[in-house]
Amino acid sequence: MTWAEMQPLLTQAVWDTLYMVGLATLVSVAGGLPLGILLVLTDRGGLLRNAFVNKVVGAVVNVGRSLPFLILMVALIPFTRLVVGTTIGAEAAVVPLAVGAVPFFARLVETAVREVDHGLVEAVQAMGGSTWTVVRKALLPESLPSVVSGLTTTVVTLVGYSAMAGAIGAGGLGDLAIRYGYQRFETGLMLVTVAVLIVLVTLIQLAGDLAARSLSHRGRSESAAPRLRLLRAPARAEAEPAKAS
């Protein structure tokens, strides 16, 4: 197989993968973020303490997390047909991808939001803020760097899942690797696919790390990330904490 033959296949596969992962990511954020916050708020000692809601949401999330993705994908086939009308192609793959990623991301959001100092919640309450204000002004902005890190992990996981989805006819890089690399012994294409996946995942991770760091204004993140100095205005990097007032 020559590069000229590979190139259109690869381009199509990369687009399919990006499409599947992108759409599934949007759904995971839309679903996982509120679920994760709800898990924290309804937990014991939370602002909306509600054992019933907490148990139910927790159970749903756990069920979603405990199924291996391959099984989830197959089990969801009737549901997928109901939602998108087909079970083949990138569009159809978005459904199991999103269903798999929502609980995953919800748990990561839960952990991130739980990390927020309870003192901040109290401070906003003492100012007269409602529960919604606490979520919007304190919990979300303060946990944002961790949430972004969690999202990065979710996207990378989704890239992996999307390759599995390729196995049942979703298209994308996984599909390419199986049909050409595995079934037709096209080692060249296989290697290129692997390289593309590595580059893709590395780029996602890098972008996620950069975003998380630039959102974090906690203490010494500057010195912990020397390469970020290059991207920052020098004035900021020099702004050392002043001595006692």
């Binding site: 003192g119 401070a123 007269g128």
Partner: peptide, 19 residues
């Protein structure tokens, strides 16, 4: 909440939003 907004409070660990 309206009554609380008219009572200021300062905390031992400051409780400022780092973001």
């Amino acid at each position: 909440r309206a009554a609380r907004s008219r009572i200021g409070m300062v905390f031992q660990h400051f409780n400022l939003l780092s973001s």
